[in-house]
Simulated scan of single mutants.
Amino acid sequence: MPRDLISLDIQQKTYIEARLTNEGPSLALAYFFWLFLGIFSAHRFYLGRTLSAVLQVISYLFVVGIIWWIIDLFLLPDMVRERQDEVRRRIAERL
């Protein structure tokens, strides 16, 4: 959990985690997009990484994108975790 959320009480943290479950990204869905719609960089669009998604789609024209797509297999957990932290911070700011 990000350091700025440490000062929250248990009830607030539970609330944030419940909202994250509903609003945050899913690792399983990110992998689904990667596997079935990876050529369109759907997983990156899903995680809010629009610029890198567009660059990835363009790079597919030059075959480099295929390598990038394979690398994303290993990067997805961290990308999802970062996006979840953003959602946590956004929810905590509303409290």
Rank of each mutant, 00 (worst) to 15 (best):
M79A: 10
F45C: 08
L35I: 06
F32S: 07
L73A: 09
R44F: 06
R90A: 12
K13L: 15
F32H: 05
L95A: 13
G48W: 11
L51F: 02
Q12F: 03
M1F: 13
I67K: 05
A30D: 04
L37V: 15
D85I: 06
L20H: 10
Q12E: 14
F33L: 10
F36R: 03
W69I: 14
I10K: 12
W69A: 10
Y60F: 15
T14D: 11
L20C: 12
G48E: 06
I67R: 06
G24V: 14
S59N: 08
Y31M: 00
T50P: 00
L29H: 05
Q11W: 01
Y15W: 07
W34L: 15
K13V: 14
Q11G: 10
V64Q: 05
Y60Q: 03
L61N: 13
F33P: 01
Q84L: 01
L55I: 05
A18C: 02
L8R: 10
L61R: 06
Q12W: 04
M1T: 07
S41N: 11
W69C: 08
V80W: 03
W34N: 15
I58S: 10
R94V: 00
A30I: 11
R49N: 04
W68C: 09
P77S: 05
P25M: 02
Q84R: 14
S7P: 01
S52R: 04
L47H: 02
W34E: 14
Q84H: 08
W68Y: 08
I6M: 06
T21M: 08
E93A: 14
S52P: 09
R90H: 08
R44V: 13
P25F: 01
I67Y: 04
L73D: 00
S7K: 06
T50R: 05
A18L: 09
L27Q: 12
V87C: 01
Q12D: 13
R90I: 03
L95Q: 03
M1K: 07
Y15V: 06
G24D: 12
R3E: 10
R19L: 04
R19M: 06
F74S: 07
A42T: 08
R81N: 07
Y31G: 11
L55Y: 03
F74K: 02
L47V: 15
P77W: 02
S7D: 10
L51E: 09
M79E: 12
P77C: 11
R83N: 01
I39L: 15
P25R: 07
A30W: 06
A42V: 13
I91T: 03
G38A: 14
Y46S: 11
Q12K: 04
I10F: 14
I70Y: 03
A28K: 12
H43Y: 10
R81Q: 11
L76G: 13
L8Q: 10
L73I: 15
Y31T: 09
F62A: 11
L51Q: 07
